[in-house]
């Protein structure tokens, strides 16, 4: 094939409430359910579920971070579509709130004998809080 491989991918991040990103980027890292995936232009078509985590991409040589919770990503050679429940740009993250959420989730998990606590929910809350904190740190570091 004599196809010219593009050097940029179009990245769309959409949530039920709004369009978070609509950018031309040179590379994306997705928090896949089974681990992080690095996507560069010309990637083979791929479909994956996402786990709460840090989505990063490079635009104009600058790194950007978006914290996503559960969702899907569709990867095409010239396009990445990310469908997620919530997405927050690193600079929008309320670190204090995330810290509190993490604390709360950890406290819950410590009381694992208590039948009133939904362990799975607490786990998920913890994962989300950690994803937020990690994304926020990524911006600073």
């Amino acid at each position: 094939m004599a196809d010219v491989i593009a050097t940029e991918i179009r990245l769309d991040i959409v949530t039920p409430d709004h369009l978070v990103a609509h950018d031309s980027v040179s590379g994306v890292t997705l928090p896949g359910k089974t681990g992080y995936l690095g996507i560069l232009p010309g990637h083979a078509p791929l479909l994956t579920e996402l786990a709460p985590g840090k989505l990063t991409y490079m635009r104009d040589g600058l790194p950007h971070g978006v914290c996503v919770t559960w969702g899907f990503a569709e990867v095409l050679p010239d396009r990445v579509i990310v469908l997620v429940q919530t997405a927050e740009r690193a600079e929008e993250i309320d670190v204090e709130r995330a810290e509190r959420a993490k604390q709360r989730a950890e406290d819950r998990l410590k009381r694992f004998a208590d039948p009133q606590i939904d362990m799975e929910r607490a786990h998920e809350a913890l994962r989300r809080a950690l994803a937020r904190l990690e994304t926020a740190r990524h911006l600073q570091g």
């Binding site: 896949g32 791929l46 569709e74």
Partner: peptide, 26 residues
Amino acid sequence: IDYLYEQPAAELLNSLLPRYVETQVY
């Protein structure tokens, strides 16, 4: 398009369908 799947398609469908209903309701 023939996709690569990170997990079995049936599993993907499992989590996709309830979400689809959610968007419809929304």
